Simulated assay, not measured.
Amino acid sequence: MTRTRIHNFSLSLDGFATGADQAPEAPMGHAGQRLHEWLVATRFGAPILGRRGGTAGVDDAFAQQHEPDIGAEIMGAGKFGPPGWQDDADWTGWWGPNPPFHTPAFVLTHRPRPSIEMEGGTTFHFLDAAPAEALQAARAAAGGRDVRIGGGPTVVRDFLAAGLVDHMHLVLVPIVLGRGVRVWDGLEALEEHYRIEVVSAPSGVTHLTFDRKAP
C-alpha cells in the first residue's frame, strides 16, 4: 500500500522549520543554513552544496532514507519559490534545470499554472487543492510507490492535521530561531497516534521517527 512519508525535516528547539524574511537570496529566511548543517555534512547531503565526501554514521543513515521507493512529492508554494514567484512566468524553482526530485512534484498554490517538465524526470504540477485531494493526485502519479511530503512547515502541519502522514522523520536541531513558521501549532496530542523513536547523533541533532499506529 502506498504510504505518505516525511524525511529529513529539520526544526529548531522552539519548533520553527523555516526562518522569517524568506527572499530569493535567503530561501530559509533568517535561519540561513543552520537547520540543515547536519544534512549537508553527510555523504547524502554534501552534493546539495556541490561538495564531495561527507560523513557516514547516524546522520547519513537517516538522510539516505529520503529517496528509496518515492514515486511523487508534494510541496508548498514556499518551498517552490520565494514570495511573489507566481508573478514570474519564468520561475521554475530553486534547483536549476535538473531538480533533485526525479518524480512528479505537486506544488500547492492558490494560483496554479501549466505543468513544467524539467530535466531528470521531474515534472512540476501546480494545484489549488486540499491535502486529501492533492494526495489523491500524487498517489495516482506515483505508480504504486510512496508519496513524500516535502514541506515547508505549513504543508507538513496541514497533512498531519488531516491525518494523512504514515511515517515522519524529524530532526531536532539545537538552535533557537525565535521567529519564522512553526510546525506544531494546532497539533495537540499528535503523539497519541504514532509510535515514536528517538536517536541522538554525535553531531548534536536528535532524530525522531513517527510511525502511525494501527487503527
Rank of each mutant, 00 (worst) to 15 (best):
M1I: 02
T2D: 02
I6K: 05
F9L: 10
F16D: 02
T18I: 07
A23N: 00
E25R: 14
A26F: 05
M28I: 01
M28G: 01
A31C: 05
G32Y: 14
G32H: 08
R34K: 13
R34T: 14
E37L: 15
L39E: 04
A41I: 05
F44M: 07
G45N: 04
A46L: 11
R51Q: 15
G53P: 08
T55S: 12
V58L: 12
D60I: 04
Q65D: 15
A72W: 06
A72P: 03
A72C: 10
G76H: 04
G76A: 12
F80Q: 00
W85E: 00
Q86G: 00
T92V: 10
T92I: 11
W94D: 00
G96M: 11
G96I: 06
N98L: 11
T103K: 14
T103W: 01
F106S: 03
V107H: 01
L108Y: 10
T109M: 12
H110R: 08
P112G: 08
P112E: 02
R113T: 09
M118H: 12
E119C: 05
G121T: 06
T122R: 03
T123V: 15
H125D: 01
F126A: 05
D128P: 00
E133Y: 07
A137H: 14
R139S: 09
A140H: 06
A141S: 08
A142I: 07
A142N: 03
G144D: 13
G150Y: 02
V156I: 11
A162M: 05
A162V: 08
V165A: 03
D166L: 08
H167Q: 13
V171Q: 07
L172P: 01
V173M: 02
P174S: 07
I175G: 07
V176K: 14
V176C: 15
L177K: 06
L177P: 05
G180K: 11
W184L: 15
D185F: 08
L190C: 10
L190T: 06
E192R: 13
R195G: 06
I196H: 13
I196P: 03
E197V: 06
V198L: 07
A201N: 13
S203V: 12
D211E: 13
D211W: 00
